[in-house]
């Protein structure tokens, strides 16, 4: 437990001193600002612009437009930022050999994996919560408070999807030991899942649907029960990927 805490502190210090945490906070705060602003301002811009006689008449924006931006930005830009910040968390250590001193001090390899995941998940949670809070604050300011149905499962979807990506990047790092191998694996899996999400029958089971589609819980177009299979698969896959990373790393010659 002492080694776990010590390595978590090291991971936190690293994220602060290498500006990863700052980048995460800045990016997700910016997304939070963009969500409500875009929803509020975009219709005015389009309505007011001269498109050579073509008139676009968009309806008056609502709070739901702001939340739609939130889910879209998180699933697209948010994923990109998350991957850039965390892709090297395991790979760089193996590539540079910084873990050799640590492992030869008696640190269990699984502790490395678990502490890295814990800190990455904590940072992701803070960044995601910040983005959510900023979006909520601006949405409240522009459109006032309105009750959001199934808010908890709706907002838990993208968060769980983020955790899945983190575990995937840890597995990629333990498997390939370099940044680009990890990036290729993560990008490949995201691409495949995105393609599978086009097939309506598979959407129900696809963890990718948690990234953006839980918006339909807020708009009342879907119910939480619709997402249960994808949610279970997402949680199981996160656990399985972490287990896989532990097994792979235990067998890895460093």
């Amino acid at each position: 437990m002492k080694a776990f805490t010590a390595f978590c502190k090291k991971e936190l210090l690293e994220s602060v001193r290498s500006f990863k945490f700052l980048i995460l906070l800045a990016a997700f705060t910016l997304f939070g600002l963009m969500n409500a602003m875009t929803a509020k301002v975009l219709p005015d811009i389009l309505n007011g612009s001269d498109l050579g006689g073509l008139t676009i008449q968009l309806p008056e924006p609502t709070a739901m437009d702001s939340w739609a931006q939130f889910f879209k930005n998180n699933s697209q830009l948010g994923t990109v930022v998350l991957v850039i910040v965390f892709c090297g968390m395991m790979a760089n250590e193996l590539n540079r050999g910084t873990l050799i001193n640590i492992l030869t001090k008696g640190m269990k390899r699984r502790t490395v994996i678990l502490s890295k995941f814990t800190v990455a998940a904590a940072l992701w949670t803070v960044a995601y919560a910040l983005s959510l809070a900023v979006t909520y604050a601006f949405t409240f300011y522009f459109w006032g408070g309105e009750t959001l149905p199934h808010a908890l499962p709706a907002f838990a979807g993208p968060w769980l999807h983020g955790l899945l990506l983190l575990s995937l990047m840890i597995l990629g790092g333990a498997c390939f030991g370099n940044f680009f191998g990890t990036l290729l694996l993560t990008g490949g899996v995201v691409l495949v899942l995105s393609l599978l999400n086009i097939v309506p029958k598979l959407q129900k089971f696809n963890p990718m649907s948690l990234a953006a589609d839980t918006l339909y819980l807020l708009s009342g177009q879907k119910t939480p029960a619709d997402f249960i299979p994808a949610l279970l698969i997402c949680v199981a896959a996160t656990a399985a990927l972490l287990m896989g990373a532990i097994v792979l790393f235990d067998r890895r010659q460093v």
Binding site: R96, G97, T98, I100, N101, L103, T104, G106, M107, K108
Partner: peptide, 15 residues
């Protein structure tokens, strides 16, 4: 790593 509690290691290029 049980035996590593007895050992200190200095790699050729410590990182």
């Amino acid at each position: 790593t049980a035996t590593n509690r007895h050992v200190g290691y200095l790699p050729d290029v410590p990182e």
